[in-house]
Amino acid sequence: MATKTASKVKAKVKVTAKSAVKSAIKIKPTSANGSTNGHAVTTSRLDVRKTYKIYIDGKFPRTESGRIYPLKDAAGNIIANICRGSRKDLRESIVSNRKAQSGWSSKSAYNRGQILYRIAETLESRKVQFVDILTKQGDTAASAKKEVDSAIDNLVYYAGWCDKYIQVFSSVNPVESSHFNFSYPEPTGVVTVMAPMKQGLLGIVNLIAPMIIGGNVCTVFASEKYPMTAVDFAEVLNASDVPGGVVNIITGLQKEFIGHASSHMDVNAILFSDLDQAQRKLIQENASLNVKRVLDFSKEDMLSPYRILAAQEIKTTWHPVGN
């Protein structure tokens, strides 16, 4: 019975879909919502549109607020309805980050490095998709290709640091008393990340890779101009054995998030690279509520272990020596 009903429904949908294509083709391409939604229009079948949702705790919920904002192409056509995330989404995301943090940071460095490398592998296999989606959001094919290549290569670069930065930045300290005294970096904890407006993919990768490789967990507020890339990248993370809650990605209007992302009391650090003076000031003022680390990567080298070190705390242990 059930199967029969299902196939009936399917058939019905097909019919509707066909007629929809016909009518869609008749509509002028300039009209609102004449969406290509990242896929080429063919006359043979109606494309299936993707619903762009946010990414929290390894799942893809809609924003709690139920709000959306229209993403438009250069010609002003709506190409997707994007979740306009809310403060409540942020809070849930931080709860999920906090839950995930100790598990993520206690994974072996080798294991975390392999997961980072896996993200690169997955991204490589979806290169065409990312070039395509960046182009849809306004990039040229050439710059999109370059950006995706860099994102993959940078992930590989940071993957390699996972079991090395601790060696580079640690010390054994020759104290006077009878102790084995050593200092090594530990992750700061939960980091909120304001993704840069430009470079929808590379912008996120360059900020989160040095965070998560060092055992931190992140909530990323995606670029308003490249939300589709951000959500597609969330799918890459989801398919690459990155545990849920290690990276959450929320789309929406960054100006709605800056205040909350910098004032949330269970956030340890806030990271950005392209904010203006007023935004930086607001962040630093709010950060003082719980002595958040304010990390500005606008001037840092893109590829550098010092980016990893920026979100680390040095722990010093005095271990007794004796009989």
Partner: peptide, 28 residues
Amino acid sequence: AGVVWANTYNKFDPTSPFGGYKESGMGR
């Protein structure tokens, strides 16, 4: 915590970094 002593306490040395996590500050 930034400094942890085992079987001792309040030991300091110029070679040994000192400083906090969270609201205990930043930098060493």
